[in-house]
Simulated scan of single mutants.
Amino acid sequence: MGRVAVVQAASVPFDAEAATAKTEALIAETAAAGAELVVFPEAFIGGYPKGTTFGTAVGLRTERGRDEFARYFAGAVSLDGPEVQRLEAAAAEHRVFVVIGVIERLGNTLYCTALLISPDSGLVGNHRKLMPTGTERLVWGFGDGSTLDTMDSPLGRIGSVICWENYMPLMRQAMYAKGVQLYCAPTADDRPTWQASMVHVAIEGRVFVYSACQFLTIADFPEDHAIDFEMPNGDVLMRGGSMIVDPTGTVLAGPVFDEETILYADVDLEAKYRSHLDFDAVGHYSRPDVFALTVDTRARDSVSFAGP
């Protein structure tokens, strides 16, 4: 038995230092409330640039758009950078496991990444979003199968599937096969339809689901940052909707909309084991004689150097 926290808050877009400081404070707050695992939203450090066009259309880029991308690039973090080191230190100090969405900078490409941080071992996983959705592909690269990472904890095995990756059935099946018990879903999807998906995942995988979304407004962005479209919820860019679901599909906390909050719920793996009496998607309810899935977990580098 242990306690898990799901953070619903605004990031500090394009400012890795400020976003990291906010994260450190939230780790301390959730640990003080008894949490042993804390889950943050997608792109919490680096920012989710909702409504931003980066000055692009088919066959067209603008200088303003390149300036916007340069600021976004500068606000990203590297895995060996000081921001990640500070997150590792905060996890160790407060004895809490951390799953957090960041914008990762590797070379000249950005990735939407979920970091898995252990209080004992530091950064043990960095899952890069396999399939950026829609125009996210303009500013984020594609992850590969080498980052389908999990980490073990006293609460259970933890894994992360980011936003609309959760709509990829084979991705979910791969994560179930990796033994995920605490299924973390950092997201930017604040629509009511998302909650039904999270309940489905919990029942399908017989997993605890922790869905974390930001509550983000235009005021959270720098004053000179342009939003080129009229947003459907006015000045609110992301409404939240974070929630916690158990392996039977019972909602333990949330969803909460239109405010910053922290959700808490206890996890007891016996509830998962009991639920497998009649269903195991990768075990006794599978049909490997009919269906098979092969997952390529090799790193896909664009350039390989052979020789001394």
Score class of each variant (00 low, 15 high):
residue 241 G to P: 07
residue 158 I to Q: 01
residue 232 P to S: 02
residue 239 R to G: 07
residue 97 F to H: 15
residue 172 R to D: 10
residue 127 H to I: 08
residue 114 A to Y: 02
residue 192 P to M: 06
residue 141 G to V: 11
residue 208 F to K: 02
residue 47 G to V: 05
residue 240 G to Q: 12
residue 137 R to P: 00
residue 192 P to L: 05
residue 158 I to N: 01
residue 44 F to L: 08
residue 35 A to C: 02
residue 242 S to G: 15
residue 297 T to L: 00
residue 244 I to N: 01
residue 26 L to S: 07
residue 179 G to R: 03
residue 157 R to K: 15
residue 181 Q to N: 08
residue 276 H to E: 14
residue 87 L to I: 07
residue 83 E to Q: 15
residue 152 D to V: 14
residue 267 V to K: 07
residue 253 A to H: 05
residue 121 S to H: 15
residue 24 E to Y: 06
residue 216 L to V: 10
residue 280 D to N: 15
residue 65 G to Y: 07
residue 284 H to F: 15
residue 79 L to K: 02
residue 30 T to Y: 06
residue 16 A to K: 13
residue 132 P to D: 03
residue 125 G to Y: 03
residue 32 A to Y: 06
residue 105 R to V: 02
residue 292 A to S: 12
residue 286 S to M: 08
residue 60 L to R: 09
residue 211 S to G: 09
residue 101 G to R: 03
residue 117 I to K: 02
residue 7 V to K: 12
residue 291 F to C: 09
residue 220 D to T: 01
residue 58 V to K: 01
residue 224 D to S: 10
residue 240 G to N: 13
residue 55 G to W: 04
residue 296 D to F: 00
residue 115 L to D: 09
residue 45 I to M: 13
residue 213 C to W: 00
residue 181 Q to D: 12
residue 283 G to D: 04
residue 203 I to C: 11
residue 276 H to R: 15
residue 47 G to I: 04
residue 48 Y to N: 04
residue 298 R to F: 08
residue 131 M to I: 08
residue 300 R to A: 13
residue 36 E to H: 08
residue 225 H to R: 09
residue 256 V to N: 10
residue 18 A to Y: 08
residue 67 D to Q: 14
residue 258 D to F: 05
residue 8 Q to S: 11
residue 91 A to G: 08
residue 296 D to S: 01
residue 259 E to S: 09
residue 212 A to C: 11
residue 108 N to F: 03
residue 57 A to C: 04
